[in-house]
Simulated assay, not measured.
Amino acid sequence: MNTILWDFDGVILDSMAIRDWGFRKIFNSFTNEEVDRLITFHSNNGGLSRYVKIRYFYEEILGMSITEEEVLLYANEFSKLMRKELVNPENLIQDSVDFIKQNFNKYCFHIVSGSDQEELRFLCKELGIDSYFISIHGSPTPKKQLVSMLLEKQSYNKSQTCLIGDSINDYEAAEFNNITFYGYNNFELKKLKHKYIDNFISLEGI
Score class of each variant (00 low, 15 high):
residue 206 I to H: 05
residue 145 Q to T: 15
residue 136 I to H: 09
residue 1 M to K: 11
residue 79 S to G: 05
residue 179 I to L: 06
residue 172 E to L: 14
residue 125 K to I: 00
residue 80 K to G: 02
residue 165 G to V: 04
residue 128 G to S: 09
residue 147 V to A: 02
residue 8 F to E: 01
residue 175 E to N: 13
residue 174 A to H: 05
residue 69 E to G: 03
residue 57 F to T: 09
residue 129 I to R: 02
residue 154 Q to M: 14
residue 180 T to R: 14
residue 4 I to V: 15
residue 157 N to C: 12
residue 31 T to H: 05
residue 77 E to I: 04
residue 150 L to A: 12
residue 66 I to Y: 02
residue 60 E to A: 08
residue 68 E to Q: 15
residue 90 E to A: 12
residue 96 S to M: 01
residue 189 L to A: 10
residue 95 D to Y: 06
residue 129 I to N: 03
residue 185 N to A: 13
residue 85 E to M: 13
residue 43 S to K: 14
residue 122 F to C: 06
residue 130 D to F: 02
residue 157 N to R: 11
residue 86 L to H: 10
residue 97 V to G: 07
residue 202 S to C: 03
residue 76 N to V: 09
residue 128 G to R: 10
residue 109 F to E: 02
residue 99 F to T: 01
residue 48 L to E: 06
residue 85 E to S: 15
residue 132 Y to A: 06
residue 70 E to I: 10
residue 14 D to I: 09
residue 117 Q to I: 13
residue 62 L to V: 07
residue 121 R to T: 10
residue 77 E to A: 11
residue 5 L to Q: 03
residue 85 E to N: 15
residue 30 F to R: 12
residue 39 I to V: 11
residue 143 K to C: 08
residue 25 K to V: 02
residue 26 I to V: 15
residue 169 N to E: 14
residue 99 F to K: 01
residue 175 E to V: 12
residue 55 R to Y: 00
residue 84 K to Q: 13
residue 124 C to G: 06
